[in-house]
Design a protein around this nucleic acid. Sequence first.
DNA 1: GCGAGTTGCTCAGTGTGCTGACTAATTTCT
DNA 2: AGAAATTAGTCAGCACACTGAGCAACTCGC
Lengths: 145, 145
Amino acid sequence: MAAVDLSTHPGHLARRLQQAHTLLWTTMVSEETTSPQFAVLNALAEKPDIDQRTLSGHVHLDRSTIADLVARLGRRGLLERGRDPQDGRRSVLKLTDEGAAVHRKLVTRTTRMNRVFLAPLDEGEQETLLRLIGRVADAAEELRA
Amino acid sequence: MAAVDLSTHPGHLARRLQQAHTLLWTTMVSEETTSPQFAVLNALAEKPDIDQRTLSGHVHLDRSTIADLVARLGRRGLLERGRDPQDGRRSVLKLTDEGAAVHRKLVTRTTRMNRVFLAPLDEGEQETLLRLIGRVADAAEELRA
DNA sequence: GCGAGTTGCTCAGTGTGCTGACTAATTTCT
DNA sequence: AGAAATTAGTCAGCACACTGAGCAACTCGC
């Protein structure tokens, strides 16, 4: 008894939102490349030759998860990892030609998918939703630091 | 090159929102019981004696994930699974006394946590955020059907 | 009442995401 | 220069979350 209405709980809604997104992603964008994998490709397309720690900051994922993603993308030949000669701890990442090609293809598809995903909202609501989520996420990240 | 700004991508933001929520959850609510586990306890507190499929509908998770969650909660003695005598396929779930106690404790804590989580927004914005997420998630679930 | 289809659950496999412990390389302090 | 602290990455372990295949139990049509 005394149960709570989960539809007023931001955590539950956040999970459902991500779930809905994943579903649409696999049907409209790619079955092979996941959304977090695309985030990695995208970050490396913008800033090549960065190490895993910097990358993890850009996509907001921790070191172990990045290591996994990088390993998977590396196995598929989408990126290359070298060792930084200046600092032997760092691995330097960059997209292969194939990785860059996959990234280009997915950019157009994700744009299309985002339109469909947000279609139930009008333009002002879409902008509001993204802004509000960003503020809550940013604030929570501040707490961590 | 031609990289995209992830902060305008709802999928990426949804993941970050959930990430932020999980972080706050483990510090403010519980380290043992996760948010999806709470969702299960909450659903059973409201409607005991349901089967896993019905439960999966209530918390918006698929059958395999529910099976995992139920097994974990069962191992911790928070719920009991019986076999439906009318229909031998169904397992009938209900909270143990301990499960109900854990649920009661977490209800008050999640309420407190939700306030902190949404604190960066004013009251109107909070209501708007929850409503907009709900609409997008609902619409995407419609597509599935 | 019996075969065919449906339904509830399980299991294997994959991917995401975290913590905490460890290794190796670099930097800092003395 | 050498010890101590910091930093990058790896690894094990756990939890969540999905698909697809399979099994057991029930229902429906004939």
